[in-house]
Design a protein around this nucleic acid. Structure first.
Lengths: 202, 202
DNA sequence: ACGATCTGACACGAGCTAGTGTCAATATGG
DNA sequence: CCATATTGACACTAGCTCGTGTCAGATCGT
């Protein structure tokens, strides 16, 4: 146990630790988002972050803990981007929201891998589920006749899952080069699909 | 090296080996389809199949080889069920085809896990991709103006991926108990989505 | 400059699993 | 009934990775 905590390279002990945590999160996003979770080792993360295991275990007790933190970060960032867009443009014109959300994924294939592919398994299913449920809640808040017909609610939940799956699969296909289109065109099509699938809300 | 191959328990050597292979395939489907690929060990498969490692390596050289064989089997079975239905009912009424395909998955959650979730990673992406491509081909064979407009072809490919993703996600949500509906109702909704998404073909 | 903290590289054992090998018990054909 | 193919249980080594420990050197406060 150190007796006094000194500054190092102009940073306090807390700053240094926070900096290392950021490096580890970035390394985690990179490796989890490219090679995948199961192919990622603690040593790999350390090498990518240019740190040693000592500092990995200073910040996280296991790879899974890092993984959860990475996904939480990514989802929080996405939420922070999308929510204000919804607040300002509403649901009548879903284009700004879809463009923001889908555009973010098309800009970074690591997000596609992490959020669409890897979240189907392991400890991430809970986070995936919670995110989708939150999205459904936000969506249905705008529905005029919510809480009216319980079977309609179930239908809307199914439609939400269906649309989420459609977006995810298209994103995966695009990220792996199987769809030759500009991001704008993809968003066009996904907007059209949204308008055809979603019952009129808001 | 055995000098002569005898019958055992009324079965020839080939029959016994084929029998063991079937047991291993069944065990693989069970474990891969429930606990997942990464959680499945060679010893687990052997225990499930009530065989020893000797017979595992007699039939497969690795877990991955078993996995590929299992998925190939499952896809071949699904294809064998769906193709005649399409041949007899065509695309104007997609209901029989969708009912067959989706019904098969809803009847066996292991298929959902294996085909929708686990095929996103590792050696299975190739099989998933090939299956989807084949489905797209079959679908577009019925299109009246195929090979006409190349950008229309791209659009149709995107729509196919989108619909595949929608079906998969709904199946996953249903398999994990997040959608309370009968299989028939789910098929109803997915048929409606298909008709809304798919441009008029056939 | 000096003592203490901080850092990074690496050593090390524990635990798990793949793949192979051994051996006694069992079933078969002659 | 005997020689042998066949089986199943299990031992065993090798390789990988986790998590911890060690230690010399760099950096800072005084």
């Amino acid at each position: 146990m150190p007796q006094t905590r000194r500054t190092y390279r102009g940073m306090s002990a807390e700053e240094r630790q926070a900096e290392r945590r950021k490096q580890l999160l970035a390394a985690g996003l990179e490796l989890f988002g490219t090679h995948g979770i199961t192919a990622t080792r603690v040593d790999d993360v350390c090498a990518e972050a240019e740190l040693t295991k000592r500092y990995f275990y200073e910040n996280f007790s296991s790879l899974e803990e890092l993984l959860l933190a990475v996904v939480e970060d990514v989802l929080a960032d996405l939420t922070a981007r999308v929510v204000p867009v919804i607040a300002s443009s509403g649901w009548r014109d879903p284009r700004p929201m879809l463009s923001t959300f889908i555009g973010a994924m098309l800009d970074d294939p690591r997000l596609v891998r992490l959020l669409v592919i890897e979240t189907h398994t392991g400890a991430l299913v809970r986070q995936r589920h919670q995110f989708i449920e939150r999205a459904i809640d936000v969506w249905l808040e705008a529905a005029p006749d919510r809480d009216r017909d319980p079977s309609l609610l179930q239908t809307q939940r199914l439609l939400a899952h269906a649309y989420a799956g459609a977006v995810g699969e298209v994103a995966v296909a695009w990220a792996s080069g199987r769809i030759t289109m500009s991001a704008e065109e993809i968003i066009d099509h996904l907007e059209r699909i949204f308008l055809r699938i979603a019952p009129q809300v808001g």
